[in-house]
């Protein structure tokens, strides 16, 4: 099975360590998203998995067979992976059909079987009528579906996706996400998906690996990453919310709602720990909670996003059904907060 094992992988370009000692186990059939801002090393990590970049140190195993280890480097053409590129990488001198059939051609599959498999791949991405067209005459979404079909046609055990939706508009992304999801369900392939878009990562992946400056910040399900970010950087990177300072509490303390109101009204000079508060856990009401002053109010369609300032000067975000005047005095009640790792 296609269990992928990454051990102490590092990559240094001339003067810069891009990937720094990353270890990661990807179970067979798992859908893993590598999520991070640009420059976090996620693409380099993916390109090392593909075999395009040589790691500076570390090892990669697929089902206990080394892909990269001391003295061994399996070149990309022998890894039997599939890959979808941000730029689609459809060869301009081949038709849609020829592009999709190319992996079969190099594998020596010919005749009826080749035709049948191309036809099935085209059906899966719903592009049968475009088989004879040139890639240059297709739209971005269609091109990416051709690229997906090209990847599908050999049923690879591991599929690498390098920001495949970055060049598509929002509406198309949702459709393409659906294509990726059904692709994953049908083939059971192990999928590694590089993205900087947390929405994509959360809606597609079983496991999200958040990368920052060449290191893994946190690994977990979408719920774990969103619900319990480990540190202030993660909290700021995933979803929206605010990091606020509170006085010393021990990691064992349960942060009840009552306790939170007390902690958050403390003077800043007494504060040394941080908590992370999502806007949906901050309720604006006139009769309970901390006093606050409205700083900003932005209409978001389904609700208003309100920024408020607490008496001790810290900012907090909330949602509200009605607009509030800027400068208005009100109260906020904080239901939940997550204690972040001690910064020291």
């Amino acid at each position: 099975m296609a269990h992928l094992s990454i051990r102490n992988l590092s990559k240094t370009f001339v003067d810069q360590q891009v990937v720094n000692d990353i270890s990661l186990e990807v179970k067979a059939g798992e859908f893993v998203a590598l999520l991070g801002p640009s420059g976090s090393g996620k693409s380099t990590l993916l390109r090392m998995l593909a075999g395009f970049e040589n790691p500076t140190s570390g090892r990669i195993y697929l089902a206990d067979q080394p892909l990269h280890a001391e003295g061994i480097h399996v070149p990309p053409e022998l890894r039997k992976f599939g890959m979808v590129f941000q730029s689609y990488a459809l060869w301009p001198h081949m038709s849609v059909e020829e592009n999709i059939g190319y992996p079969l051609r190099v594998a020596g599959i010919k005749g009826d079987e080749k035709r049948l498999r191309i036809k099935r791949a085209l059906e899966t991405v719903q592009l049968e009528p475009l088989a004879k067209r040139d890639p240059s005459s297709l739209s971005g979404g269609q091109r990416q579906r051709v690229a997906l079909a090209r990847c599908l046609v050999t049923e690879p055990q591991v599929v690498l996706l390098d920001e495949p939706l970055a060049n598509l508009d929002r509406h198309l992304r949702a459709t393409m996400e659906e294509h990726f999801r059904s692709f994953h369900q049908r083939t059971g392939a192990t999928m590694i998906y590089v993205t900087h878009d947390q929405g994509e990562a959360m809606s597609l992946a079983d496991t999200i690996v958040v990368l920052n400056q060449g290191k893994i910040e946190q690994t977990g399900s979408a719920q774990q990453i969103y619900g319990s970010p480990k540190n202030a950087w993660l909290a700021g990177f995933i979803g929206s919310g605010c990091v606020l300072k509170v006085p010393v509490v021990s990691d064992q303390d349960v942060l009840t709602a009552e306790k939170l109101q007390v902690l958050l009204s403390a003077k800043l000079s007494e504060c040394s720990r941080q908590v992370f508060i999502r806007p949906q856990f901050v309720v604006i009401s006139n009769d309970q909670g901390l006093e606050a002053c409205v700083c900003a109010c932005v209409y978001k369609g389904e609700r208003y996003e309100i920024s408020l300032k607490l008496l001790n000067g810290q900012k907090i975000q909330s949602y509200h059904q009605r607009p509030l005047n800027i400068g208005a005095k009100t109260r906020v009640f904080i239901h939940q907060a997550k204690l972040l790792e001690d910064a020291r």
Partner: peptide
Amino acid sequence: LDKSFVEAAKIVGAKPLQLLRHILWPL
């Protein structure tokens, strides 16, 4: 040439000579 043209061919299993003949030569 866009580097991904070459990389896409490698990842689907094209050997160096196939890469030269099928992808780089026509392009």
